[in-house]
C-alpha cells in the first residue's frame, strides 16, 4: 500500500516538474519585448477601461502615450490633469492641461412638463425607438428615457428615473469619459466645464422647433426668444436654430439669464437659494 502512495507521489511530482520546465522554456521562447514604461504608465492610469480617451482601454492608451512623440493629442478624461502629470513625468514629456468636465443631459422634459402623446411598445432602447418613432411625446428632440446612456456608463454616474422619464447624471460619479455622449441618439448629452460644488447654469433643452411648436410639446422648452443672449454680460450664450446654448467655458455663473427665461428652460443647479428681493 505504502509503495503505491510513494509511486503516486513520485509520478505526479515528475509530471508536474516536467510540465513546469516545459512551460518555462516555452514562455522564454515566445517572450515579447515590451517597453517597461507601458506598464508604468498603465499603473498610473485609473484602470477603468472606459474608452473615454478614444483608445480601446487603458493598456492601449498607455502604449499610445509611450509611442507618441508628445502628449498633445492624448488625454485621459477620467484621471484628469493629475494623472496626465504623472504620465508626463514618467515619459519626460509635457501634458496638456484641461479643465475637468462633467456630463449633462440637456433635457428637462420630465412627464410633468412634457405629456405623453403615444405609447411606445417596441424594444426599450432609445436608438431603436428613434429609428421608427420620434418618442412618446410631441417633442422630437428630447430625452426618450430608456437609458442608452445608463447602459453605456461604467461609473454608476447615471440614475434612471423611469417615473420622470429623464435620467439624472450624478455629478460626483461622472468622470467625463464621454461614453454617454456617444450613446445618446438625440445628442442630448454635453460635456461641460465642471464648476466648484457642481454648480451650473445650463439650457436644459435641445428643441429646435419654432417657439409655439416647442412649448406646445413641452412646457419647459427653449423657444429661442433670445432674452438670455441679451442679458448675458460675457457673450457666453448663442442662439441658433431657435435654441439658446450656454458655452460653459465662457459662462461665469453670474445667474443673470435664468430669471429672464420665459419658459424656465435655463436651469441653475446646486446654488444656494436666491435671496427674495422685496
Amino acid at each position: 500500500m505504502s509503495i503505491t502512495i510513494v509511486y503516486t507521489i513520485a509520478t505526479l511530482s515528475i509530471l508536474g516538474g516536467s510540465a513546469a520546465v516545459i512551460l518555462y522554456l516555452v514562455a522564454q521562447k515566445f517572450k515579447v519585448y515590451e517597453d517597461p514604461r507601458i506598464d508604468e504608465v498603465e499603473k498610473a492610469l485609473p484602470g477603468a477601461n472606459c474608452g473615454g480617451c478614444g483608445y480601446a482601454g487603458c493598456r492601449a492608451f498607455a502604449e499610445a502615450c509611450v509611442n507618441a512623440p508628445d502628449l498633445m493629442e492624448l488625454y485621459c478624461p477620467v484621471g484628469g490633469d493629475e494623472v496626465m502629470g504623472k504620465i508626463a513625468d514618467i515619459l519626460g514629456l509635457v501634458a496638456v492641461k484641461k479643465d475637468p468636465r462633467v456630463a449633462f443631459i440637456r433635457c428637462n422634459g420630465v412627464c410633468e412638463f412634457r405629456p405623453d402623446t403615444s405609447n411606445y411598445d417596441g424594444v426599450k432602447t432609445c436608438a431603436i425607438e428613434l429609428l421608427v418613432y420620434s418618442g412618446e411625446t410631441d417633442c422630437q428632440w428630447g430625452c426618450l428615457g430608456y437609458g442608452d446612456c445608463y447602459e453605456a456608463c461604467d461609473f454608476n454616474a447615471i440614475e434612471l428615473r423611469p417615473q420622470l422619464g429623464v435620467p439624472l447624471i450624478i455629478d460626483d460619479n461622472c468622470v467625463a469619459c464621454g461614453a454617454c455622449v456617444e450613446a445618446c441618439p438625440n445628442n442630448l448629452i454635453e460635456l461641460r466645464k465642471k464648476f466648484p460644488k457642481n454648480r451650473k447654469v445650463v439650457v436644459a433643452c435641445r428643441n429646435q422647433d419654432k417657439g409655439a411648436v416647442a412649448v406646445k410639446a413641452c412646457k419647459v422648452a427653449c423657444i429661442g426668444c433670445g432674452k438670455c443672449v441679451k442679458v448675458c454680460p460675457f457673450d457666453a450664450i448663442t442662439l441658433e436654430n431657435n435654441l439658446a446654448f450656454i458655452d460653459s467655458d465662457k459662462c461665469k455663473l453670474c445667474r443673470k439669464c435664468p430669471p429672464v427665461c420665459p419658459t424656465g428652460a435655463i436651469l441653475e443647479l446646486n446654488f444656494p437659494p436666491r435671496k427674495v428681493i422685496e
Binding site: T117, S118, V132, Y133, S134, D138, Q140, D209
Partner: peptide
C-alpha cells in the same frame, strides 16, 4: 405648415 407624420416628426 408642418404636421407630425406617422413617426412623430413634423
Amino acid at each position: 405648415d408642418s404636421m407630425a407624420d406617422s413617426s412623430g416628426y413634423p
